Computed example of a mutant assay.
Amino acid sequence: MGQEQAVKSSDTAARAGQSRPDELVPSRYAVRVGDIDVLVISDGVLEPPAESMATNADPATRDAWLDTMFLPHDTFDWALNAVVVRSGSQTILIDSGIGGEVPDFPRAGQFGHRLAAAGVDLETVTDVVLTHMHFDHVGGLLVDGVKERLRPDLRIHVSAAEATFWEAPDFSRTGMPPALAEVARSAATRFLKEYRHQLQTFETEQEVAPGVVVARTGGHTPGHSVVRITSGKDRLMFGGDAIFPVSFDHPEWHNGFEHDPEEATRVRLRLMRELTETGAWLVSTHMPFPSVGRVAASGDLFRWVPAWWDY
C-alpha cells in the first residue's frame, strides 16, 4: 500500500461540517491504495449480546476468551465501520452504518455527521456498494432526508442473491434475538421499497470503478459480498461481515447473525488464506477502528497485524 495517513480528530479542513465537540477520539482514517483513496469512517459501537459472538461455542470457553480480551460476559463492544472510496471520477460509499434502526444502540448511528465532518457530501456520492442488507449496513440510507440529498442517478450495487433473499428472508439458522431479526426484516423491506429502481445487481462479481470490484461470497447472508481494491501493487479488501475479531482465534465459531453458519466458516477461512497469501490490507465492518491491518498465518490459525497509525 502507498502512504497511510491518519486524519486527526482536530482537523479543521472539513468542507461540509465539523465533528461534534464532545467527540474525543478519531473517527476517520485515510489510506492510499496506489492511486485510489480509501477513507474508513466509524459509525460508532454496537453492544450485542455476547452469546451472539459464538453460538456454537461452549459458554465457559466463550467466557474464557472474553476474559483474555478484557471484555464482559453479557454484552461486548462491536465496532461498526463503513468506507468511502475515490477512484477516478467516482465516489463510492461501501455500506452506510446503522442509522436510527436500533435506538437501543445509542453509541452507533454516527455515520451521517462523521461523513460530513470528513468533508464528504452525500451529493457527490456516485455509487453505493452494499456488502449485504443487514440493518447495520443499510440503515444510514434510511435516515430521514438522506435519499433526498443523493443523486438521482446514484447506482447501488448489491448481489442479486442478496436482493432476492430479503424478499422473503429466512432466519431459522441464525442466533439473532427475535427483536433484532424483526429490525433486520423491516429495514431490508424499507430499503428495497425506497431504492429498488437504483439497484445494480450482479451474479458473481462486478467492477464498480477502475480497481474496485465487488464479489459475492455468500455465507453470512446468501448474497454477502466483499470489495477488493487494487491499484498498482497495492491491494485492500473490505471484508464486510466475513471476518470478526474472534475469527483469528476461533474461525470455527458461528456468529449469531450468520444465515448459513457452516458456509460462513468456509468463506471466512478462504478469505483469510487469501489475505495471508496476497499480503493485501484488510478492513472489516466489525474489526476495531480503524480496522486496517493484515492477516498473517499462525500455525493452523491466523494472526491480526494492525497497521501502524501514520499521523
Rank of each mutant, 00 (worst) to 15 (best):
Asp43Ser: 06
Arg32Ala: 08
Arg196Asn: 15
Lys8Thr: 01
Asp35Arg: 14
Glu167Gln: 13
Pro106Lys: 14
Val40Met: 00
Pro251Ala: 02
Val38Ile: 10
Gln3Leu: 15
Phe105Leu: 06
Gly44Asn: 03
Ala117Ser: 14
Val31Met: 08
Glu182Phe: 02
Phe302Thr: 14
Gly239Met: 03
Gln18Glu: 15
Ala163Val: 13
Arg107Glu: 15
Ala118Pro: 06
Val33Ile: 13
Val143Asp: 15
Pro21Gln: 05
Arg185Cys: 07
Leu142Ile: 09
Val213His: 01
His157Thr: 04
Ala64Asn: 05
Val213Asp: 03
Leu282Met: 04
Ala30Val: 00
Asp121Arg: 11
Gly17Lys: 12
Ala60Trp: 02
Gly34Thr: 02
Ala57Met: 07
Gly211Ala: 10
Ala160Ile: 00
His224Lys: 03
Phe302Trp: 12
Gly140Asp: 10
Asp153Leu: 05
His132Cys: 06
Thr124Leu: 00
Ala108Cys: 00
His137Gln: 03
Arg173Asp: 10
Arg303Asn: 04
Gly240His: 09
Asp170Cys: 10
Arg185His: 02
Arg28Ile: 09
Pro222Ile: 13
Leu199Tyr: 06
Gly232Glu: 14
Ala181Glu: 09
Glu123His: 09
Glu123Met: 04
Ala82Pro: 08
Phe302Asn: 07
Glu258Lys: 08
Leu130Phe: 15
Phe302Arg: 05
Pro178Trp: 13
Ser9Trp: 11
Gly256Glu: 02
Glu167Arg: 02
Ala6His: 11
His73Arg: 12
Asp67Phe: 03
Ala188Ile: 02
Ala168Gly: 07
Arg294Met: 08
Arg20Asp: 15
Met69Val: 11
Val25Gln: 04
Thr61Glu: 14
Met1Asn: 02
Ala184Gln: 13
Gly44Gln: 11
Trp253Gln: 13
Glu4Asn: 10
Val146Leu: 09
Gly2Asp: 12
Thr204Ser: 00
Pro49Ser: 07
Val283Glu: 04
His137Leu: 10
Phe289Thr: 06
Val83Arg: 01
Gly34Ile: 07
Glu263Tyr: 10
Ala163Pro: 06
Gly97Pro: 05
Met133Thr: 07
Gln200Gly: 01
Lys147Arg: 14
Val292Ala: 06
Ala14Thr: 07
Glu148Arg: 13
Ser89Tyr: 02
Gly88Met: 14
Val143Arg: 12
Phe257Ser: 05
Thr68Tyr: 11
Tyr311Ile: 09
Phe76Pro: 03
His113Pro: 01
